[in-house]
């Protein structure tokens, strides 16, 4: 929960612009995330929250500005004093320290829970298979699913699938975790189990950027809340300020819907 200050930010976004054809979705985003910090991004649908997350691990390329994660500019490198685009394998390498959890879980349906979790550690990070399995079992235990090791995703409830997806992302020992509305596809009674898992991670000092509509989660688990609308970061600050006492009328209007 406690952010380390005076350190170098883990994530730095400067004047980030992103368009889809004519539609400008991100209109100059500036955001720093410190190591160990949990940042919740709130905002109405279509405001560009998912796009911002996807730019951070270069699933989408930005058009202006720059994004840096752990001291490396995402998607580019400097060579002979000039900025050049990274090859797809270079980008793949950069993504290896960033874990991502999707709204639709996106587990690999043809693999068991265990195979889902060890796929990237063994196949991408070249971890020893035995160690990876051991670590996967530990993670499954941590998300409360140790008895589901050999199940296929289709045999699990939505909440269980999302917890497996979290374990899968943790298995690569990420420096940064991105969550894109991890509870939005869940039945209301399953939201709690996923949020509880995420609260645990937050309290253990993992750096997290969480796009969510769960206001109470943002209030309790986040170090900082960012309100986004129309491609701009409109308001940013401590949860008790942004949620408890919003200054901008759009933030006020948005939050009033949750009261």
């Amino acid at each position: 929960m406690t952010a380390v200050h005076n350190a170098r930010p883990l994530v730095q976004a400067r004047n980030v612009h992103k368009s889809f054809d004519q539609l400008e979705v991100l209109k100059g985003i500036d955001l720093n995330v410190m190591p160990g910090e949990v940042v919740a991004i709130l905002g109405p649908s279509g405001s560009g929250k998912s796009t911002l997350l996807r730019c951070i691990n270069h699933l989408e390329a930005i058009h202006k500005g720059y994004i840096e994660v752990d001291g490396e500019q995402i998607g580019y490198r400097v060579r002979n004093n000039r900025l050049e685009k990274l090859s797809s394998s270079g980008i793949a390498r950069q993504r290896r320290k960033i874990g991502m959890v999707f709204q639709q879980f996106n587990l690999y349906p043809h693999m068991t829970v265990l195979q889902n979790i060890i796929e990237a550690p063994v196949g991408v990070h070249k971890e020893n298979r035995k160690d990876a399995i051991e670590n996967a079992r530990r993670l499954l235990d941590r998300v409360g699913l140790s008895e589901k090791t050999d199940s296929f995703p289709r045999q699990l409830s939505g909440g269980q699938q999302q917890r497996v997806a979290i374990a899968r992302a943790l298995a690569i020992k990420p420096k940064l975790m991105l969550f894109d509305e991890p509870t939005s596809a869940l039945d209301p009674e399953l939201v709690g189990e996923v949020l509880a898992t995420m609260r645990d991670l937050a309290s253990e000092g993992l750096t997290m950027i969480v796009v969510t509509h769960e206001i109470s989660f943002a209030r309790e688990a986040a170090d900082r809340v960012v309100f986004m609308d129309g491609g701009h970061l409109i308001e940013m600050g401590k949860p008790e300020d942004v949620i408890g006492n919003p200054q901008h009328p759009r933030t006020q209007a948005f939050l009033s819907r949750f009261l």
Binding site: N57, L59, S88, S89, A92, R93, Q94, R95, R96, I98, M100, F102, Q104, N106, Y108, P109, H110, E119, A120, G123, V124, H125, I172
Partner: peptide
């Protein structure tokens, strides 16, 4: 599903590996 390619990419797999391990089996 498009999301499968995206997930494989987000986990740092190369295109060839994503195709071989994730997309083709499905």
């Amino acid at each position: 599903d498009r999301g499968q390619t995206e997930t494989a990419e987000a986990f740092g797999m190369t295109k060839a590996r994503a195709l071989w391990r994730i997309i083709i089996p499905q």
